[in-house]
Design a protein around this nucleic acid. Structure first.
Lengths: 127, 127
DNA sequence: ATAAAGGTTCTAGTTAGTGGAAGGTCAAGG
DNA sequence: CCTTGACCTTCCACTAACTAGAACCTTTAT
């Protein structure tokens, strides 16, 4: 498979796949005689794996770590769970922050008449 | 006031205040003979305003727009409310995404034994 | 033969700053 | 008067995770 094929199959932009190859995250199986990257099923699997992990908010470095576990036959599921739990905690923290933000912004928005008068509680709130 | 004074008063790092001056977001009132930036109460007010707006997730460009409204005596509160409502919608969208993410990750984490066996539902899930 | 649609590398830009180096300025203390 | 330390200045490089574009090469089809 050449780059556009795996990109399509993994639902990633070609540029991103090339980027992942550049940073050594998911390298192509080889190159054609003319220098084209060529990918096999394993590479495709990793790309899909990385896309999913990224959607879960794992950073590139965490993906690298997860890929290591994914490849390592001796990995324990405890290692993976540890990473996932940290990530889950971060998501929950983010949710709390977002909720506080939402409540406050919502409050000031509803206090604002939204008319043509220059008086505005939203701006006053920021002051 | 010199830069460290406003930085402290606005609760922003000195570097950030300098950066805001560089990009023309909040410029100092003037410079001393030796080239030090000097700020007045207006500048401090704007810095505080920007910090708060940033905490609400407004981008630098949006802050620029808000500052314009904040300075414009003819601004209508409708303009401000429009910006704030867009932002509120984005926060709500982010909340929904985060919730979906949380549910899915939480589900796979709880399906994982977290022991020393190489079998791991989390990694399987990414596959 | 040539044109379109792929591929390649490289550079530079994005966001919103942060870190550090090299050097100028200011007030206090010896 | 000199030095020390805490300020200040500019400038350059770096961060995360790509994305855009330029210049150029290869493959395939007409």
């Amino acid at each position: 498979m050449q780059i556009s094929d795996v990109a399509k199959a993994a639902n990633l932009p070609v540029k991103t796949v090339r980027y992942y190859a550049d940073i050594g995250l998911v390298k192509p199986a080889g190159r054609t005689s003319s220098g084209y990257r060529s990918y096999d099923e394993t590479g495709l699997g990793k790309l899909i794996f990385v896309r999913r992990a990224r959607e879960f908010g794992f950073s590139i470095d965490e993906c690298r770590e997860l890929l290591g576990l994914y490849e390592d036959k001796n990995r324990s599921s405890a290692d993976v769970k540890k990473l996932a739990l940290i990530r889950l905690g971060m998501i929950e923290e983010k949710q709390r922050e977002l909720q506080a933000l939402h409540d406050e912004l919502s409050r000031v928005v509803h206090a604002c008449a939204g008319d043509n008068r220059p008086n505005c509680p939203i701006l006053d709130h920021f002051r």
